[in-house]
Amino acid sequence: MTAPAVLRSVPVALGIPALGVAVPLSSLGLNSDGTVEVPTDYQEPGWFRLGPTPGQIGSSVILGHVDSYQGPAVFFKLGTLRPGDRVDVLLADGVVVHFAVDGVATYLKSQFPADQVYGSNGSSALELVTCGGQFDQRSGHYLSNIVVATSLVGSTSPAKVPPTPR
C-alpha cells in the first residue's frame, strides 16, 4: 500500500466501473449464530459494520449477492474483475476512496478464510465477497465464495472544506 489511510467514515456507495456497478451500500452486522448478515436487497451490497471503514488500515468487507432466485444480482459479474481494475467507495464525509484489484479467488465455503478476509495485515484493504462455484440444488446454497481482494491506492476529498468536528 502506498497511499495514506483515510479517516473513519461510514461508506454509503460503491462503484465498480469495469462492471458498470454504481450502487448505494447498506450496512451489515452479525446473525445471532455469529455468521455475517447478508443484504436483504439483491441489488444493494452491504458493508460489514463491525470492522474498519474502507480506507482505514485493516480489511473492510463489502458483501453482495451473486444472484437471486430469479436471476443475476448486483455482484453477478464480480468474478470477472481483473488485477488493476478500480473500485471506488464514497464515504459519508464526502471522501471517495480508491482501491485497485489485487486478485480474485474462489474458496470453498467449508474452507472460507475468515481471518484473512476480515483481519488486518497492516495495510488498507477492501474485500468484495459474493458466492460462486457450484450451486448445490439440494441445499439451495452455493458451495464457494468469490473474494476480490483490493488495496487502497488513493482518495479524493470533497470540494468543500470539511467543517470542524465537535
Binding site: 474498519p52 444472484d67 444480482a73 472460507f112 460462486g132 439451495g140 482518495s155
Partner: peptide, 30 residues
C-alpha cells in the same frame, strides 16, 4: 479534487470476525 495527504490514523482496525461463510447467492443463475 486533491488526494488527502499527510498522516492519518495509522493504527490497524480489526473488528469482529464472523464465523462460517457468507450466503450471498440463491442460485437463480445456476
Amino acid at each position: 479534487g486533491t488526494a488527502q495527504s499527510g498522516a492519518t490514523p495509522t493504527t490497524a482496525v480489526t473488528g469482529v470476525i464472523p464465523r462460517g461463510a457468507p450466503a450471498t447467492g440463491a442460485g437463480g443463475t445456476a
